[in-house]
Design a protein around this nucleic acid. Sequence first.
DNA 1: TTCATACCTGCAAACATGCGCAGTTATATG
DNA 2: CATATAACTGCGCATGTTTGCAGGTATGAA
Lengths: 121, 121
Amino acid sequence: MPSRLIVSRELADLFRLLAHADRLRLIEELRSGEKDVTGLAQALDLPSTRISQHLALLRTHRLVEERRDGRNHFYRIVNPSLALWILDALPFVDIRLRLEEADHIDTARALWGVPDPNASH
Amino acid sequence: MPSRLIVSRELADLFRLLAHADRLRLIEELRSGEKDVTGLAQALDLPSTRISQHLALLRTHRLVEERRDGRNHFYRIVNPSLALWILDALPFVDIRLRLEEADHIDTARALWGVPDPNASH
DNA sequence: TTCATACCTGCAAACATGCGCAGTTATATG
DNA sequence: CATATAACTGCGCATGTTTGCAGGTATGAA
């Protein structure tokens, strides 16, 4: 019954793909809609070569898709709920962050334009 | 406004921590309650040294906690909802998995003892 | 056709991670 | 005390990842 093993390996592959700050920022940047490589490079203040390399990785794992229009290549998230799921990880980040800035998680959600699910208090 | 950068780095750290099949299996194994190192080593069929190394990583990032009783060190997940959130990633794993085994996700959930949230059909 | 723009790929150096193994600490037991 | 068991840490090698850079393709405009 190697299914558990297979699944954990597939999950680990996904996590490895997301284990880079710039790739997370790319996914966040694409949350508001498709963007081309130059636009992403400007938004993240990184060389476009690097953006291409990251996008190629995300593309081979089917997390983003490409649409070409003239010289521009526009990228979009295949499954937009991915970005929401990523933000659900905020409660699990190291305690230091939570202690040093008590409302850092809410700040992050606000910065990334996501409604606070605990907005009752 | 470097908060977005800081947050994406913290998130990337978390993802890197989870980007290993054996560490995911450890977290899954601890879902049913605390276990000691030897127990985990037997469950995953891995040398206990390796288990120790993985647990040390998870510990320094406060994902698991340790309780000592005699010679045994028992580990538990600090925030049990972590395991549930990890399984929420299954819809995002590479399309190949979904095409080759259409109900692999349900199989995985069943294997890992989690109720299927789409159990209406 | 020539030039500029937008993007991609290949490669090698730098860097990070995973692993086995040897040695160590801590606790229990005879 | 000596010995056994449980677990940890440090270290070196192998493997994987990230990055800059050089060179390449494709599109559009002069």
